[in-house]
Simulated assay, not measured.
Amino acid sequence: MKYLKLAIFSIGSLFLLVTCIGLLFPSRVTVIRSASFNQPIDSVYPMLHDLSNWHYWLFDSTHPGKLLTTSSIGPGASIQVGSSKITITHDSAYYIESTWHGSKSNDQICGWRLSQDPNTPGTMLRWHYTQHLDWYPWERVGAVLNEKILGPSMDSSMARLKRHFEQQRE
């Protein structure tokens, strides 16, 4: 009985300690990537705001996208990619925002901002993912890995988009 009380007290103390440490981590995590394209904004914008073009560049294109709405453009347009449902929530003036709803995690807000690149005649693309986290310690501590998981996928997608434009020029 003495060892059982010690085990329960130890597990409870460890859980409380991990929870307190987890609360020190931010409740919102954002991963950001940027890239320049030697294309005018009007060429890059349709690749992002039209869901039917995402298969050309999106990192998870191993799963075919299934359009869930009649329109593939504008707020309300929705697509299923793998286990994620992606819905465009905002689309105006070269800024597109979407909500990514996965089956096992909190929703993520994803946004793309296009602007004229000041150094070239091309386009600057800024892509961000933002995830709001619950108080659970495993979510807070695990969110540190978001950069390691999403970053390479985002880099790969931007590289695919650059290759797509290069192939169009050939």
Rank of each mutant, 00 (worst) to 15 (best):
M124F: 13
A93F: 13
S105F: 10
T123M: 10
W100Y: 05
H101N: 12
G122Q: 13
T120C: 15
S115K: 08
T120E: 15
S103R: 06
M124E: 11
S105I: 09
T120A: 14
G122C: 09
I88K: 00
S115R: 11
R126T: 11
C110M: 10
T99H: 03
L125A: 06
E97F: 08
S115W: 08
T123H: 06
M124R: 12
G102V: 00
W100E: 00
Y129P: 01
M124N: 04
S105G: 09
P121N: 15
I96E: 03
L125P: 00
I96A: 00
G111K: 04
D91R: 01
G111T: 08
G122W: 09
G122L: 07
P118T: 11
I88S: 01
L114A: 04
Q131P: 09
L114I: 10
G102Y: 09
N106T: 06
I88G: 00
G122P: 12
S105V: 07
Y95V: 02
H132M: 10
S92Q: 05
Y95A: 00
S98C: 01
I88N: 02
M124A: 15
G102E: 05
T123Q: 05
D107T: 14
T89N: 02
T123F: 06
D107K: 02
R113Q: 03
H90I: 03
I88F: 08
W112M: 10
R126E: 04
S115C: 05
M124Q: 13
R113V: 14
Q108N: 09
T130W: 04
A93W: 12
Q108H: 12
P118F: 11
A93Y: 11
W127I: 08
S98T: 02
P118A: 10
A93I: 04
R126C: 06
G122K: 13
H128T: 15
Y94N: 01
N106F: 07
I88C: 10
P121S: 14
W112P: 00
I109R: 01
T123V: 07
D91H: 07
A93P: 06
W100D: 05
Q108W: 08
T89W: 00
D91G: 00
W112N: 14
T120H: 15
K104I: 14
N106P: 08
T130H: 03
S92I: 03
H90K: 00
Y95I: 05
G102S: 10
P121W: 15
W127G: 05
W127Q: 09
Y95M: 07
W127Y: 11
